[in-house]
Amino acid sequence: MDSFVAILQLFDSTIRLSAPLLLACLAGLYSERAGIFDIGLEGKMLAGAFAAGAVATWYGSASLALIAAIAISVALGLVHGFASITHRGNQIVSGVAINFIAAGTTVILGQAWFHQGGRTPSLPNTARFNAINLPGAETLREVPIIGPIYFELISGHSILVYLAFLLVPFTWWVLYRTRFGLRLRAVGENPAAVDTAGISVPWLRYRAVICCGILCGIAGAYLATAQGAGFVKDMTAGKGYIALAALIFAKWRPVQAMYACLLFGFLDALGIRLQGQSLPLIGEVPVQLMQALPYILTIVLLAGFIGKAIPPKAGGVAYVKER
């Protein structure tokens, strides 16, 4: 029974750790499916987390913090759009620039405004997205097997976690069952065809970049006001890049993106769990190996051992109308 609960707790932290990955990964999905590569997920998440931390400190409201995070992240997304859609700049270069701007600005402003070495003050529970106990969780707890699963695993997460997982079917629906989704996918594969049909390629791509910004903002707000209690310097710690890896892993599809994020979240949770522990047969697993595993897996995938990942055809290419 103890090991059963231990495993449940492992899966529980898997869900907590995958939620920001999933949000960022879906954000990248919207953007890249429309043909705009986005290395800047990391930066947008980081800026969002800082905005959420700062606003929650000043106004003590989690929902205001969420709105601020989304606003700043969308603004950075629009910068990316301005550079790569309007001015046809290199999308990768633009994304890298956004990452640096976010990394530097959050620390400088954080230090200047809060004087705590780049972090925002620790938030009280009233200014955070707290865990929600689903109805009946306490009463069902005593029921064997199902009770603990319901109580430990499904209930007791913040609303943003549920939002992240609900966004998976929603994204699938948008992408494959709506006119907007059809056009979004088309503009990533063959923008000339979309243009010929009389639909504005730039406006469509701008909308995709805005969707990406919204989701990155939610991911940032989750880090600062749900998972943590306040912003910490460089708190995304490469999550944006792992989300990018998950996106490739999932071959740019929403449901598979969820599986990939759960896998990477599980590796993260397992790494924390195994820290300093010795396993039978293998001995102590270095933490560094667990940290590098998502990247190694992605490289192995890209090398073609798990199947070929083919990105959207027009990805990374600015659309030029007059040719």
Partner: peptide
């Protein structure tokens, strides 16, 4: 004291943005 070396990271990002991504502007 409000300006640390992280200021360079911002300038670096802005240079990459204006000299790289927005070079056509």
């Amino acid at each position: 004291p409000n300006i640390s070396r992280d200021m360079i990271v911002i300038i670096q990002g802005l240079v990459i943005l204006f000299a790289g991504a927005l070079e056509h502007m």
